[in-house]
């Protein structure tokens, strides 16, 4: 029953929410409900008032009344603790499917007041709590599980707080405009499969590699960090990349067509593994998918390009 209403509420919320890059929490989008403790307090107050009536005890009445008053005021206080909070969608670094994507949400305030004991997360059970002093900002990583490759859109994010008296729970569901690139899950293919993997095409000239030191050249963005001549950098000679050459034999060209016999997703997972493996072992590699060809190369940028192609392959 409870779940039914929760699902209904989330459906309704989803219809209401417009995803945007930045949201300010205010009256329109903050909900407030008494907490379990609020109900407990209400019960105690009723008990006190009954006792007061029965004993004709005016001090007991006063106690009951001051508690009622504080209860109502605490609604304002709890609401104020969340109101004015600004949520900003930050970036999210790409992850492999199965890993947890971490969306960065930066929080600030439009008010000169602090926001205390506020939780941010994708569900009530997974809230990250923080205190935000007046005039400061805060960044929270909101984790979200990934299952399949492609773009992962940021799910609803919940902001909730019971501060300062715990009698009420204020919460707000928001949809932030952010997405995360999810690479295929890397799966190691077996040796039989590896045999099919095409080596570099009959290109005999020396190509950049890792085997033999060739010389220095200025750093170009995209060069692998492993190539950087850190010694020279330490001597403040600037960033230089060491160039290596390797024989044509250890360069790779991975093709989706080579794995046409297996399931598409599995093939992409294998390719993902191969690409990452090749980068780790400092080899030169390229990628060919249906309609996309990435020439052979190396380095973080190259890897990212390959992985993105794999992630977004239709």
């Amino acid at each position: 029953m409870k779940n039914y209403w929760r699902r209904k509420f989330h459906l309704w919320i989803d219809q209401r929410l417009v995803s945007s890059h930045e949201v300010v929490l205010k009256q329109k989008n903050i909900y407030i409900l008494p907490s379990v403790y609020g109900f407990l307090m209400a019960a105690i107050v009723i008990l006190v008032l009954i006792a007061a009536t029965n004993y004709q005890n005016n001090l007991a009445f006063l106690t009951g009344f001051v508690l009622i008053s504080i209860g109502f005021l605490s609604m304002f206080y709890t609401f104020r603790n969340l109101a004015g909070l600004v949520l900003n969608a930050g970036g999210c670094s790409p992850v492999f499917a199965g890993e947890t994507a971490s969306f960065i949400v930066s929080l600030s305030s439009v008010k000169p007041l602090g926001h205390y004991s506020v939780g941010v997360g994708t569900s009530k059970a997974a809230l990250h709590y923080f205190d935000m002093e007046p005039g400061t900002e805060y960044r929270v990583e909101v984790p979200q599980a990934t299952t399949k490759r492609g773009w992962l859109t940021f799910s609803r994010v919940l902001c909730a707080s019971r501060f300062p008296f715990g009698t009420f729970r204020v919460f707000s569901w928001q949809k932030l405009d952010a997405r995360c690139l999810v690479y295929p899950r890397p799966i190691q293919p077996d040796d039989a499969v590896l045999a099919r993997v095409g080596q570099g095409e009959g290109d005999s000239r020396e190509r950049p590699g890792v085997e033999d030191y060739w010389g220095h050249r200025g750093y170009r963005p995209g060069d692998s960090k492993r190539q950087i001549d850190w010694k020279a950098y330490a001597k403040e000679q600037g960033l230089h990349s060491r160039e290596f050459v390797e024989s044509a034999g250890s360069s790779w060209m991975f093709r989706l067509d080579d794995f046409a016999h297996v399931d598409r997703e599995l093939a992409l997972s294998w390719l993902c593994y191969l690409v990452v493996h090749a980068e780790r072992s400092n080899q030169v590699y390229g990628l060919e998918l249906t309609g996309i060809r990435i020439d052979q190369g190396r380095g973080d940028e190259h890897l990212a390009r390959c992985l993105q192609a794999l992630a977004l392959h239709p």
Binding site: N58, L62, F65, V66, S69, I70, F72
Partner: peptide
């Protein structure tokens, strides 16, 4: 909170 509650309390009383 207590200061704000006192007038409310008086009304109720």
């Amino acid at each position: 909170v207590l200061l704000l509650a006192i007038p409310l309390m008086m009304v109720l009383f």
